[in-house]
Every structure is written in C-alpha cells, then in structure tokens.
C-alpha cells in the first residue's frame, strides 16, 4: 500500500517538474540559522511521555525558476523536566519543491528524526509529500506560509514500518527593507504512527530563524 502511494507521488512529482521546464528563469537562495523549541510526546501503548528542550541548526534553499531545493538540520537535547530522562534529538529534512502557480507549492522529500539515549539511537525516517501556500501580506516585507505534509512511506530503525504520518507548519517571515536579512517565526507539529499502533510520536515545536535570502 505504502509502496503504491510512494510511486504515485513520485509520478505526480515528475510530471510537475517536467511542467516547470518552460517556467521563467529566476535564481534565488537563502540561508538561515534556526533555534527550535521542541516538545516530543512518545505514546507507547497509551502511556504518554513528554520531553521538551531546545535545538539549534541551519536551513537553506536554492531556487531556480519555479523549482526549489531546500533542507534543514537541527540538533539539541530534550528532557522530561525533572523525571530524570533525557534524549538527544537530531532532526533533518530535505525537499524538492515546485511552484506550478503562485502561491501554491508542491514538494516531496525525506524527514529523519533520531533520538539518542544511553548510547542507543532510535531513528525515524519518513517520506513526505507536501503542499504549501505562501503569500506576501505586505509586498516584499511580510510573508506568511503554511504547509501540510503527508507521509507516504518510511520506517523506524527497529524495523517497524510507518503506518501514518502527517504534519503542518506555518509561520511569518519579516524582511528587513533594503537588506537581504529576514527574521522568521514558525510553528510545526507532526505526528507519526507505527504499524500496529505500537507507538505514536507527536513532535510540536516553535522555530525562530534569522537569515539572508536573495
């Protein structure tokens, strides 16, 4: 089932990329520093454990015409605020996006999240299809963006497959006039469930970013 959905998504994505071959040429890029404030809820058979903390990282994208490649990387630590449990959290995501029409964007890419605790590492990898909208609320000054993602495949390092995964991210970017600088704030939540409902992780985080873009 997951393989078929993945294939369908890849075909649809390929069609969109091909459609962009005639799109107008326009080059752009952006680099930003990120600070995340994640809150992770591990739900194992109904027992919920919540860990929160801080992560830092970088994000970047390169855009040519209406095709964009981007990614982000964050790492830090989370704990349960007093119960004595702590984990290192490492998260990375990449995506290839196309913008068939403004303000719509459609993309596809992997997201990986690792929990490191006591020498052991638990890694979750999902392949996500994404649909987003981004518009200027004030031209060239304030922009909002919202993106919904749906996992079409993936696995957990213990061998389990991903049964379902979904997420949403939205935020605001403020550009400093006459400079390439921008400041941003975003909120993201995603929930991933393993086959057999053995485990479900919900990761919620606020992100602050400062960067440059052209």
């Amino acid at each position: 089932m997951i393989v078929r959905r993945t294939a369908l998504a890849l075909v649809a994505f390929g069609v969109l990329v091909a459609a962009e071959a005639n799109a107008q040429s326009r080059f752009g890029f952006g680099v930003s520093g990120l600070i995340g404030f994640p809150s992770v809820q591990h739900d194992v058979g109904g027992a919920v454990e919540t860990l929160s903390g801080t992560t830092v990282g970088v994000g970047a994208y390169v855009r040519f015409a209406s095709v964009e490649v981007g990614g982000r990387y964050l790492q830090g630590s989370i704990d349960d605020a007093g119960a004595g449990r702590a984990q290192d959290l490492v998260e990375g995501a990449a995506a290839l996006l196309v913008r068939p029409v403004r303000p719509l964007s459609i993309g596809f890419g992997p997201r990986a999240r690792s929990y490191v605790e006591g020498g052991g590492t638990e890694r979750w990898v999902t392949w996500e299809a994404r649909v987003g909208l981004d518009t200027w609320l004030f031209p060239r000054v304030l922009r909002s963006a919202i993106e919904v993602s749906l996992a079409v495949g993936g696995s957990e390092s213990g061998g389990a497959s991903i049964a379902a995964g979904k997420g949403v991210e939205a935020g605001l970017d403020l550009r400093i006039p006459r400079t390439p600088l921008f400041l941003g704030v975003a909120y993201r939540v995603d929930q991933v469930r393993l086959d057999g409902d053995t485990r479900q992780d919900t990761v919620e985080q606020f992100l602050l970013r400062v960067g440059i873009s052209r």
Binding site: L133, T135, W136, L137, F138, V168, L172, V189
Partner: peptide
C-alpha cells in the same frame, strides 16, 4: 492575496494541528 494568505495561515495554524494530532495535548 494578503487576506487569503492571512486567513489560510491563521486558520491553518489554529485548526489543522488539532485535527492532525487530535489525541495530543
């Protein structure tokens, strides 16, 4: 476009997380 973007972003932020993770706090 600003109105649509603002409403979509605002409503999306307020509603979608609750729908996607309805069983989470």
């Amino acid at each position: 476009q600003a109105l649509i973007g603002g409403l979509a972003g605002g409503i999306g932020l307020a509603v979608l997380p609750s729908l996607l993770a309805s069983d989470s706090e």
